[in-house]
Design a protein around this nucleic acid. Structure first.
Lengths: 238, 238
DNA sequence: ACAAATTTTTAGATTAGTCTAAAATTTACT
DNA sequence: AGTAAATTTTAGACTAATCTAAAAATTTGT
């Protein structure tokens, strides 16, 4: 069990003391991620699962974060980030994703090897470092997993998904949404075996009518018209 | 007062658990640095000063490091690194110096701005990261302050200082040693106002006899022959 | 609507790293 | 060599983050 202290320097130390610990940052990041998937408040148990701690520990931490006004928390009623808490979370996520770009683009890691290292690097505390890294990487907009990188002011860009019709042959994408919401369309999509999160692989694009042959998960290839592809929002996963 | 935990993952975690904490690494690094300046054992107070803690805390930690066989420690008699402890220290120093090169060479920091950031980065735990970083930086031998970078097996290269006669005009160097040990020479050097650690600034190099005009600390410029310069070992400080 | 199941919180303990104050040891000075 | 000064260690306490076990609150199901 390795515990350590981010030594609170006493001597000549101009630097503004960090107001959130490594651990607090992790809690805030996890609450942010859970919040992205639902409008409801986040349960203690959900947080416990992702932090890999026990619910009792989470209760304690939520009380503490609440005192610091980083979350709104009512006993037994779940938790939600405050504006301030969200800012902290977004800064951590920005750092995490920038470091991932660095690890893949500059150091040659594979995109599936970088997460654990980025989990450590995301807590390095230096605004200047983050901004110089961002510049060095030429202001990337997405990390190697296709997730958007929050801007320096902690604003998460709205994900601008691509239409499946814009994706090139041989690419692998995740189904993220639709731009046509009629039930006729949705039912047709469901019948093809496509749901939110499905992985699609573009086998072939027909030259003259732009129709596609798409493999959905492990199933057999499906035919899909350009009309349909235009209304599917996807994210390239590389 | 910011304390945090390097979360000891329980789930599917193949990674070998780190055996030294952030804090322990700092103590080992500091003991290493103090040991480089003397053959004697290192005193509790000396460590306390550099760790910015109290002697009482140091005593506790030395006992703990001793139990882990990272230092040899006899109560009241000072401390010395074991082979294992030195390996840990050298790995931390290797990381610190590689990151400093990265910050200066790639991100454009000044060499005097990088220390605090490298103090954080040096504790990132990933062998693979260090080796890829080393490769990315093209295996640098020295950090931006002129300090040598230990090799991947934790061997610190013998510092190969330069002769002052090889240094270019306009450079700033630290006096690190002599290659001529006669007392006549040493007395002459002392008379010039030069001692170990003196900062020298090369004002001018005379073209035809390679004699130098050197500013020593804040004093007036001194004339120095090429013969003398050849026997002074220095380190460029940029 | 109320009892059972589940979730969450509290209470009390533990660990790493730190502190202050007091005790022990070593060093330094006539 | 013997005492005063300085250094170092111990003892006891504190904080952040965690845990287990028990108590409290909420949700669920008939």
């Amino acid at each position: 069990m390795e515990t350590h202290q981010r030594t609170p320097k006493k001597k000549s130390n101009y630097k503004i003391m960090q107001i959130t610990s490594f651990t607090e940052e992790n809690y805030l990041k996890i609450i942010y991620k859970l919040s992205a998937e639902t409008d409801a408040d986040i349960s203690t148990n959900a947080v416990a699962e992702l932090t890999q701690t026990k619910a009792a520990s989470v209760s304690d931490m939520l009380r503490k974060l609440s005192e610091k006004h980083l979350v709104n928390y009512q006993k037994y009623q779940g938790v939600r980030l405050t504006e301030a808490g969200e800012q902290v979370a977004l800064k951590v996520i920005r750092k995490h994703r920038l470091w991932e770009v660095f690890l893949v683009e500059k150091l040659g890691f594979n995109w599936d090897e970088v997460h654990d290292i980025a989990e450590q690097l995301e807590h390095i505390d230096s605004e200047e470092l983050v901004e110089k890294l961002d510049e060095f990487l030429e202001h990337p907009k997405f990390d190697p997993h296709g997730d958007p990188i929050p801007d320096p002011n902690g604003r998460m860009p709205k994900l601008t998904y691509q239409n499946l019709s814009e994706v090139k042959q041989g690419e692998r994408v995740l189904m993220m949404g639709v731009s046509e919401h009629s039930s006729a369309f949705l039912q047709y999509v469901a019948k093809l075996g496509i749901s939110l999160g499905s992985e699609l692989y573009i086998l072939e694009i027909n030259d003259f009518d732009k129709s596609l042959s798409v493999q959905i998960a492990q199933a057999n290839p499906q035919f899909m018209s350009h009309e349909v592809a235009k209304n599917l929002l996807v994210k390239v996963v590389k």
